[in-house]
Design a protein around this nucleic acid. Structure first.
Length: 579
DNA sequence: GCCGTTTTCGGCCCGACTGTTTTCAGTCG
């Protein structure tokens, strides 16, 4: 049976092929919308097909439902087969080239018979594109450059790589003269785990010098476009960045527009139209016959208020029910960084951390935490200098002694214990029972079958000796997928045992992710914890990223365990005790 | 192709920038 991602992939293929044959753009969008919806669907689409409730999914009507059923039965469908029979397999890939859209791809195919990127490159090198109507020498050069770029750099940039780059550029923009305000926009502001490009929105009455400075920044490799209010560039490493400079009076409208997502913006505008309004990056306008009057543009709050909505947090702006929910005043009070009182997963020089216990406590104090828990690795993780029974006992004494000095931030005694390949824990029961908090994590045998990993996790949870599962999926964004397990089963086991699920805030992990957080919240009362897994004081700064992922999952403050003060936390957490 | 507190037919977001155009189509986000 196909997975939701596979169903979505097929619909996406249909959308691409339809574009290339010149189908109605709204039809294309219908397939794209359906693909996105299925990708985000919490339950397997196969279940909906079996239950005959496919058409009740928003954006899926009779026609696409029939395609999906056909896909589930034989792995393909008539629409897809017919489109593929009509066109060379490599043609949709031409759409990946920046500057080539459906119209130009059609022209290349119909007039020159170009059906793949290699052929296109050969034509461009020979100068045979410039003769084509609407193509010129400049276009030919651009296509060649874009093909090179596409081969060197594909896909989206992981959050962990994008954020430092964006922070550096933002600081630079803010340092320029006459900049009233500047912010990061786009998917980075929405805290998506990967980003396609970097967006900056800047408020100033004098855009020209700001654009010049941006375009000549050392990180900029090439200028893509440069107008009066917008500059687009390629940065070294291949990611692109856009800077938009507008007068301070419309900053809110522009920030909203360039925060997106695209789907959110489309829905906001459709909503505005029904109320006789028009929304653009310049503000909200009331239409009175042929005149238009601006009614909001200064702040994001104004923009939302103008269309009858409360402010919606950027992390929610994915076009995934946030507008409907906001309208009913049903959005949760999302957890914020300021709510976080503790950090319950971190390492010291006792295992593979960079500093000692006192230094981590001081670093936590500097970041406003009220308490922390030290969770060094257990013995089987030899590469990380994991703690033996004896060393852990020694660390317990050390922490007791440290707390006796009345530090600003007290330290709880913990361990990140390895969940071994059979689900047993990598530490003796009597020692685990002396700890305040135990994070159980998988660090080995990632390739076990789904059922085996699920049973392995359940066994660990049911031991009664762990308080939380650390980085539950084991994924590293853009590097490895992690191991696979059945989430509903794990959620159920956690709920039965009072075990929490971690949102690991390390930017390369962000694990659990947003959709899993939603699933935990929707289907259980399991506590979430947001922890940095810091291996140094700087690592504690990642808390904001974990909070961002929690917010993307619509996590309210009262479902996050480490928003609690110490006494309340101690009552609510799972105290390690053999079941 | 989808959808309906103005519509079961006729809509479906909006503007900047580029290149090849003598006035605008195509692409992008």
């Amino acid at each position: 049976m196909l997975t939701n991602a596979q169903f979505a992939g097929h619909l996406e293929d249909i959308a691409q092929l339809l574009q290339v044959v010149g189908a109605n753009t709204f039809k294309v969008r219908a397939f794209q919308n359906a693909a996105r919806t299925i990708e985000k669907l919490p339950e397997p689409l196969a279940d909906r097909i079996a239950a005959g409730t496919v058409t009740s999914i928003d954006g899926i009507g009779k026609s696409i439902a029939a395609d999906l059923i056909e896909l589930s039965e034989r792995g393909s469908c008539t629409v897809l087969d017919e489109l593929r029979a009509q066109l060379p397999a490599g043609l949709p890939r031409l759409l990946d080239i920046q500057g080539l859209g459906p119209k130009k791809v059609q022209k290349l195919y119909h007039e020159l018979g170009i059906g793949d990127i290699d052929t296109l490159e050969a034509f461009a090198r020979d100068g045979r594109l410039a003769d084509l109507d609407g193509f010129g020498k400049r276009t030919e050069e651009k296509i060649l450059a874009e093909i090179q770029r596409l081969r060197a750099f594909t896909g989206r940039t992981p959050f962990a790589r994008a954020m430092p780059l964006a922070s550096e550029l933002l600081a630079f923009i803010r340092s320029l003269p006459d900049v009233a305000r500047a912010e990061i926009g786009g998917s980075l502001r929405r805290m998506r785990e990967t980003v396609g490009d970097l967006d900056f929105v800047c408020a100033s009455e004098r855009p020209a010098p700001i654009m010049s400075a941006f375009a000549t920044h050392p990180l900029v490799e090439e200028i893509i476009a440069r107008g009066d209010t917008k500059t687009s560039v390629y940065l070294r490493g291949g990611i692109s960045a856009d800077l938009r400079v507008v007068p301070p009076a419309v900053f809110g409208a522009t920030l909203h527009h360039f925060t997106g997502s695209k789907e959110h913006n489309v829905q906001m505008r459709a909503r505005a139209l029904k109320a006789g309004l028009r929304v653009s990056e310049w503000g909200v306008f009331r239409r009175d016959g042929d005149t238009e009057t601006p009614i909001a543009c200064a702040t994001e709050e104004d923009i939302f208020a103008a269309v009858g909505l409360p402010w919606i947090a950027p992390e929610l702006r994915e076009g995934d029910q946030e507008i409907e929910t906001a309208e009913k005043h049903g959005l949760p009070e999302l957890v914020t960084l300021a709510h976080i009182r503790s950090d319950l997963h971190m390492h010291t020089t006792w295992s593979d951390g960079a500093v000692d216990i006192a230094a981590m406590s001081a670093a936590a104090a500097a970041r406003g935490r009220a308490f922390i828990c030290i969770t060094d690795h257990s013995r089987s993780l030899t590469i990380a200098n994991g703690l033996s029974r004896e060393r852990l006992l020694a660390q317990i004494d050390t922490i007791d002694a440290f707390n006796a000095t009345h530090p600003a931030v007290p330290v709880l005694k913990g361990l990140e214990v390895d969940i071994l390949e059979d689900g047993e824990l990598d530490m003796d029961v009597d020692v685990l029972e002396r700890l305040d908090w135990v994070v159980g994590s998988i660090h080995s045998r990632f390739n076990q079958p789904t059922e085996v990993v699920t049973a392995r996790l359940v066994h660990a949870i049911q031991s009664g000796l762990i308080s939380a599962i650390g980085h539950p999926t084991g994924r590293m964004i853009g590097q490895r997928d992690g191991y696979s397990f059945d989430l509903p089963t794990i959620i159920e086991a956690c709920e039965a045992m009072g075990v929490a699920l971690e949102i690991n805030a390390a930017p390369e992990r962000l694990d659990l992710n947003d959709t899993m957080v939603k699933q935990v919240l929707r289907t259980s009362n399991v506590w979430l914890t947001i922890n940095t897994d810091a291996h140094s004081p700087d690592g504690m700064d990642s808390m904001a990223f974990g909070v961002g992922m929690a917010r993307r999952g619509w996590a309210p403050r009262d479902r996050v365990l480490n928003t609690l003060p110490l006494d309340e936390f101690l009552k609510q957490r799972r105290k390690p005790a053999a079941a």
